[in-house]
Simulated scan of single mutants.
Amino acid sequence: MSRTVTLVLVDADGRPLGALPPYEVPEPWWQEVGSVVDGARRRYGVDVAVLRLLTGDRPAPPGGHVTYLGQVTEPPAVPLTPAPVDLTPHPLRAPYAEPGGPARSVAWATRELRRLGRPVTAVAQQRTWNLSAIWRLDGPAGTAWLKQVPAFFRHEAAVLRWLATAAPTTAPTLLAADGTGRMLLDHVPGEDRYGADEAERAAVAAEHHAVQLRAAGEAAALVAAGVPDRRGPALARWIRDRLAPHDPTVAADLLAGLDDRLDQVRDCGLPDTLVHGDLHPGNVRGDGLRRTVIDWGDAFVGHPAFDILRLTETLDPPVAGRLRDAWAARWRADVPGSAPERAVELLRPVAELRLAAVYAMFLAGIEPGEHPYHRGDVPAYLSRAAAAI
């Protein structure tokens, strides 16, 4: 599967110029724009910064014909097609989706790397959507990554700072952060481990357990540093608040009994700790020597069972069961008298409900033009939560 791309261009002042002819790019995923930028340069001699999604001919990704807004510093030589485009400002638009936004972010990153003795010789835009914008920055001292995130993910920098001290090498090295969502991350060698087998997932779970055990004694400090508090009653309130604008009827029974269910989870005796929030193998990079867990923007302080449920959710039941049994054995050994298996069973539907609330949070925090990325996720996870009871 691929994409057909149309780029509607604006100039450095944000004035519309017209659209490039459509062209094909190999990756179907709408947020991946590296090949979009490369295609515009290779086919039309145009250097463009992709700003944001305008339209797609499908209700959701992947694939299809996708139109983006892009910015150029000079009008291109290739003839452009007139293309009406709504450039009305929106209060929820990401800074990197505005004309001039990518240039400002890259300028900040190059200054920070120069300060660190790492001059930049090449910059390549990799991704842009409502959850992040990512650029690769190369130079004689190696590769760094500029990642810019919206307000609801800004605590990622605080998580990375804590991990750098408490669990070195388990997460990307944070080189700089400006407090507005911009982060500079050192390169992590290897590849994303989407195809990880049972043995590798078992290793990820064991390594992550050590991190969570270390964080269990610092939950309050992590919350004070800005990591979201999703402990017990705080989680119930947050879920209800996020889902209030939606129709949670299908999961009404689960929501009605949520406080009682979370009280039972507390009685299982496991400590609250740092939770990654999206611990699937694609958020693990490995090079054969070590594994690094990436993308901590979904992190929160809460129950450790949420991560093992995410790590095992797509596996065949026997495989998932063995991984969860090993997880439970570790917690029973470290917290005598606890009931980790009971906690997992109680939290299984809550994990789906929490993800429905996460997607509701995304929709509430992004402009409507970006909603196709997540529009179907809230009802889908509400249905999954109801089915998991």
Rank of each mutant, 00 (worst) to 15 (best):
Q71R: 04
R114M: 08
W108F: 13
T88G: 10
L116K: 10
A97C: 15
T88N: 10
G100C: 01
L92Y: 08
R93F: 10
R127A: 01
G70Q: 04
V120C: 06
G117R: 01
H90K: 04
T73Y: 00
R118K: 04
R111M: 13
P79S: 07
L116N: 02
A122I: 02
R118H: 09
P119F: 02
Q71D: 10
R93P: 05
T121Q: 03
R111D: 15
H65D: 07
A109E: 05
R93E: 15
S105R: 14
Q126F: 03
T67F: 09
A124W: 04
S105V: 00
A122Y: 04
V78H: 10
T81W: 10
A83G: 04
A107L: 07
A103K: 02
H65E: 11
G70L: 07
A122P: 03
R104H: 09
P119Q: 01
T67W: 01
T110Y: 04
R118Q: 08
L92D: 14
V72A: 13
R118W: 04
T121F: 07
R127H: 09
A77F: 12
R127Y: 09
V120R: 02
V120H: 02
E74S: 13
A107Q: 14
R104N: 06
L69C: 05
P76V: 13
R111V: 13
A94F: 01
V66L: 07
V78K: 08
R104G: 15
V85W: 09
R118Y: 02
A83C: 14
V66S: 01
P75V: 05
V106E: 03
V85N: 10
V120E: 05
P82Q: 05
R114A: 15
W108H: 09
A124N: 06
W108G: 08
L80S: 06
V106Q: 03
H90A: 09
V85S: 04
P91Q: 11
S105Y: 06
A109R: 07
P84S: 12
R118M: 08
P76G: 12
R115D: 15
H90N: 09
G70P: 05
G101H: 12
P95M: 09
P76Q: 08
A77G: 14
A94L: 14
L87R: 11
Q71H: 00
W108A: 06
P82F: 09
A97R: 06
V120L: 03
G101S: 09
A124I: 05
P99L: 09
V120K: 00
T88V: 13
A97F: 02
